[in-house]
């Protein structure tokens, strides 16, 4: 039988911020049981349920698809449900809210800015003419499907914003996920809205802000490669510019 002393534990140092009391965040340490199969989210839920009900975080699916539990784990942006304690044990783990976002409380950050950016790139199918439902689905070959598929895998977990120093230095920058989504629709054979999206995507808050640190793609848990999306959008914009320069009467794009 395991007794209290033989149960191994691991320490979590969590950045706490209570907007009603604190003028600045502070770290608080918690000792939690170390379980081989636990992720950081399990440890946080254990604290919330058993030790300190005031600890505040977001979570839901615990299977890496809802995108709620993004956080900094030892300084790296991760999903709390995909960061296993065993990869850090026996060292303590430092948990902070996602970098570059304002902190509402403890691990909860403010997403209003991202939501506005998402909407501003018009991430929906834009067509000159809608196809009536009676005429069935659009034909899209597997090759056409493959063109945009990876960019459609974004779960909006915002790890990429926490990894991108530009989002901190230039708060208006649309950021990796929003641009990747714009590119996802631009590359979809059913869409005709690229020109409309370009007004935002290639504006002063868009792709040209990106200095290609490339960390967005490194931390992305769904292999979306937003850095790739941005560079491809830059290349396409540059081609547009040359086309207009060399063939000014050719009509826009």
């Amino acid at each position: 039988m395991a007794n209290k002393t033989s149960q191994p534990t691991i320490r979590l140092e969590i950045l706490r911020y209570d907007p009603e009391k604190d003028s600045a965040p502070r770290y608080q340490s918690y000792e939690v049981p170390f379980q081989e199969e636990w992720v950081v989210l399990d440890a946080i839920n254990h604290i919330k349920d058993q030790i300190d009900g005031t600890l505040t975080h977001r979570w839901s699916c615990r299977m890496g698809v809802c995108g709620s539990c993004g956080m900094m784990v030892n300084g790296v942006a991760k999903l709390g449900c995909s960061a296993f304690l065993r990869d850090y044990y026996p060292n303590p783990i430092r948990v902070e809210p996602l970098a570059h976002f304002p902190i509402i409380r403890d691990l909860v950050v403010q997403l209003d800015g991202f939501m506005a950016k998402l909407q501003s790139v018009q991430p929906w199918i834009i067509r000159k003419e809608e196809k009536p439902v009676e005429q069935g689905e659009y034909l899209q070959s597997p090759a056409q499907h493959a063109r945009y598929k990876d960019f459609s895998m974004c779960i909006n977990c915002l790890l990429c914003y926490a990894a991108c120093p530009v989002t901190e230095l230039e708060p208006h920058f649309l950021g990796p996920a929003a641009i990747a989504l714009a590119q996802r629709y631009n590359l979809d054979s059913r869409d005709e809205g690229r020109e409309i999206r370009q007004e935002t995507v290639s504006s002063h808050i868009g792709i040209w802000q990106c200095t290609l640190v490339g960390e967005c793609s490194v931390v992305c848990p769904k292999h979306v490669d937003p850095a790739g999306a941005i560079q491809q959008a830059k290349l396409a914009s540059t081609m547009d510019w040359y086309k207009e320069l060399l063939w000014p009467w050719g009509g826009k794009r």
Partner: peptide
Amino acid sequence: PKAMAVWKGEE
């Protein structure tokens, strides 16, 4: 390769 997505069919 990040900036240039070159495709051969689905790959």
